[in-house]
Design a protein around this nucleic acid. Structure first.
Lengths: 243, 243
DNA sequence: AATTTCAGTGAACGCCGTTAACTATCGCAA
DNA sequence: TTGCGATAGTTAACGGCGTTCACTGAAATT
């Protein structure tokens, strides 16, 4: 697969230009501002031409969303690689990079992490296969947690409780990441949910009525999160164990 | 202010019918399916007539969002009142009611808790005033936490750390809820963020690639959350205190 | 050189929000 | 009771949208 034909090159360039236009509209006017006619206009084309490259507006937006997932994942991987070998440092750096990207790109964040809509659900549909962007994205956070766990297990709810509550429900996770210790799966789910909650609240302006600035709260919660990942299990029962 | 005139009655009924139509479209087709023409069609009217009641589609959607906020708040208040006098029970019941409503009404959840968009931001704009729906909504969760704290302070990060990190940034919260102990403010922000994260992840299908069913994870996290609100402060320094 | 493939066009259909000009009715005051 | 202003509704129109269809012209293949 050496030489792409001339057609293939042009086609690839056109696809990229269309996506670029879509993203520009996304950034300046939100998802609803993405329109085939506007994109085509910017390219000096007519709208129906875009149907040579994407079967519908929805498909174009879905492709854009996939790209954004990968862009963010690559950003986090770079952040991780810059953070050295210590898993906690990796998680801290990745979390900060995640927040920074999200705050700097609210429209993009909303597209991939916001509410799916009829007409914008192409990504959540084929969602169980391991190649799904969301899955590859999750892996970036799972690995450091797993490293950490292997070095020295941290404080979690008692594993029998975890197995009972989560055991049968982690098939999708297993499918893409193999057999994780249930404590690691829990730590990831819990931690990623908190991280997501913090960032989504900020980006979606859910903090506005309570807090003038969310960064310090974010840092504070980050400390609490990582502290939990470093806390030794006292004997076995941590915070709340009622069985 | 006893007798509403006949005109006022009719007007109120029309406004309600318009909102009902808007909500029906929201539920069946998502936010983008809300259209003045469709609403009018369902009412046996023409679209411009709606401008007698709402200045724009955006204003109508904002009004609907406000109603949904209140509907959810009333639901939570009822749940709280049914839960008895114990604040922890109140919080548990309210949290479960919040999740249940959100899962049963994903479109509505997305409208009030999802990404604001140019053309759908009327609610986040006038957001600092204490009468804002988000603020009244938050109050429902704050009260039980405050009750709990007054009865017996729970485990939090050290207050000097909280004051240093959050102290100057809680004016909006103070504006609507008076002087809260910073530990209570933190417990609310942290807890509400985790609750929001859990529910938003589920409703927005962000769990699909990892977990088959989110209820047990929700219950598990709820236990961890409330356990934290019941944990006595050992001496003073809890999870992670680095200063 | 002939033919197939492919990118792009123009016209059209049926949606949409919004505005403007206009009509009929309702409710109130002289 | 008559008249009049406020109010609720209409039709027509503008520009924008996604999408389809029939068509053209150029590029690639044979």
């Amino acid at each position: 697969m050496a030489a792409p034909t001339r057609r293939e090159r042009l086609r690839k360039a056109a696809v990229a230009e269309i996506k670029d236009g879509a993203r520009r509209l996304l950034v300046t006017g939100g998802v609803d501002a993405i329109s085939l006619r506007a994109i085509a206009r910017d390219m000096g084309m007519t709208a129906p031409a875009i149907y040579r490259y994407f079967p519908s507006l929805e498909a174009l937006v879905a492709a854009l969303a996939g790209d954004l997932y990968d862009e963010l994942r690559l950003l986090l991987e770079t952040a991780r690689d810059d953070a050295g070998a210590e898993p906690v440092d990796q998680l801290l750096t990745m979390s900060r990079a995640f927040r920074a990207w999200s705050v700097a790109h609210p429209a993009e964040f909303g597209l991939i992490f916001g509410a799916p809509t009829p007409g914008r659900n192409a990504l959540v549909d084929g969602c169980v296969d391991p190649g799904h962007p969301g899955s590859r994205f999750g892996a970036v956070f799972i690995q450091p947690i797993l490293d950490l766990w292997r070095r020295s297990p941290f404080r979690t709810p008692p594993p029998e409780l975890l197995r009972q509550r989560l055991g049968g429900r982690l098939e999708p996770l297993r499918l893409s990441h193999g057999e994780l210790p249930v404590e690691v799966a829990y730590a990831f789910l819990s931690g990623w949910t908190r991280l997501y909650g913090l960032v989504a609240m900020e980006v979606f302006h859910q903090f506005d009525w309570a807090v003038t600035e969310a960064e310090e709260l974010f840092e504070l919660e980050l400390e609490m999160l990582t502290a939990q990942l470093l806390a030794d299990p006292p004997n076995q029962a941590p915070l709340g164990a009622k069985g």
